[in-house]
């Protein structure tokens, strides 16, 4: 069986990659994808901890289900915003989304 440290390290690396994506990318959809990576890293972390350290082995999975659900909702909403923004400004570059009103 693969030890828990491996999962934690993997999840940490994944999270850091997501952080890099969020910080470095300019395209809104790419930022969204990076956020997905971070969320998945967290869910993986939860499940790994739960499976190895929770005698019930369940709670982590349930939390992961919630994470996935909320992530789906978040993606749907965020993409709606991106598309809406794109239709108004013909760009999905977040650096240019600086105007507070128009």
């Amino acid at each position: 069986m693969v030890p828990v440290e491996n999962y934690l390290a993997l999840s940490g690396i994944l999270f850091a990659i997501g952080v890099y994506g969020v910080l470095a990318r300019r395209n809104a959809i790419l930022v969204l994808m990076s956020i997905e990576l971070m969320l998945n890293a967290v869910a993986l972390n939860f499940v790994a901890f739960a499976v190895f350290m929770d005698p019930e082995q369940i709670t982590g999975a349930v939390v992961a289900v919630f994470v996935i659900t909320v992530a789906a909702a978040e993606v749907g909403l965020a993409l709606a915003i991106v598309i809406r923004y794109f239709r108004m400004r013909a760009t999905s570059n977040i650096d240019e989304a600086a105007a507070l009103k128009w």
């Binding site: 069986m1 828990v4 999840s11 850091a16 190895f52 929770d54």
Partner: peptide, 20 residues
């Protein structure tokens, strides 16, 4: 961030309730 996370994950001794 990755370095910190990985290091802490590896260095810490996690209390293990379930082995398999």
């Amino acid at each position: 961030l990755a370095a910190i996370l990985v290091a802490s994950a590896v260095v810490t001794t996690w209390p293990r309730l379930v082995d398999d």
